[in-house]
Amino acid sequence: MHRVPSLFQPSAELVRRGATLALLGYPLENSSVSYGDWQSRELTVIGSLAYNHEDFVGAMQAIAAGRIDVASLHSGTFGLSSLKDILEELDSGRSEHVKVLIDPKREDRT
């Protein structure tokens, strides 16, 4: 995700005139965009770093009711003892995992 800021302008070019462009997450680098392009195409740009309390409560209720298959939302589960290793693996860009769950109660075999 080191190049995420470079996607701002190309993302804006993919949406129709008058569309809303949502910028999610928090890039760690500065970005350049064509303000004239965004203005002439009358784009609405909104940013979101996180969710609000109601979103969190709704998600937890949906999970508790079984309406969301959380097992499909991550590619592996690891215990705390594996945290350092799995973070290094994920950062390497060569991991088979996309998103992992750290279960503090899980005992990993070493």
Rank of each mutant, 00 (worst) to 15 (best):
P10T: 06
V33E: 09
S82L: 03
I68M: 11
H2V: 13
Q9E: 07
H2T: 13
L49E: 00
R16C: 10
S75D: 14
H97Y: 06
H74S: 11
W38S: 12
L87S: 09
A59H: 03
G58T: 05
V15K: 05
G18Y: 01
Q61N: 13
S81H: 11
N30G: 13
G76T: 08
E107N: 09
Q61I: 15
D108Y: 04
T20D: 00
R16L: 08
P10A: 07
A59G: 05
D103P: 02
I68L: 15
Q61M: 14
D69E: 14
L83D: 01
A71D: 15
E107Q: 12
D103Y: 02
L23D: 07
P27E: 00
L24H: 06
S48F: 01
H53D: 14
R94Y: 06
R17H: 14
L83V: 09
T110H: 08
T44K: 08
G47M: 05
D37L: 13
V15M: 04
I68E: 07
M1W: 02
V15F: 02
V57N: 03
V33S: 11
L49P: 03
S11D: 09
H74F: 15
L87N: 11
Y35T: 15
A19W: 05
R41Y: 07
V98T: 13
D108C: 03
G18I: 11
A64K: 07
W38V: 14
A50K: 00
E88L: 14
S11E: 07
H53S: 12
S81Y: 04
S72P: 02
K99N: 03
V15N: 05
V100T: 06
R41F: 02
Y51S: 08
G79M: 05
F78K: 11
N52S: 09
H74K: 11
G58W: 06
G18H: 05
I102G: 10
L83S: 10
S34W: 03
R94Q: 12
H97L: 01
G18M: 04
F56V: 14
G36A: 14
E88I: 10
L83G: 06
P27L: 00
G36D: 10
H74R: 13
L24P: 01
L101F: 11
L21R: 06
S75A: 07
A62D: 02
M60T: 06
K105H: 11
E42I: 15
K84L: 08
E88F: 07
F8E: 01
L90W: 02
A19C: 10
Q39Y: 12
K105I: 01
D85H: 09
L87R: 09
D108V: 08
F8W: 04
T77F: 02
G36R: 08
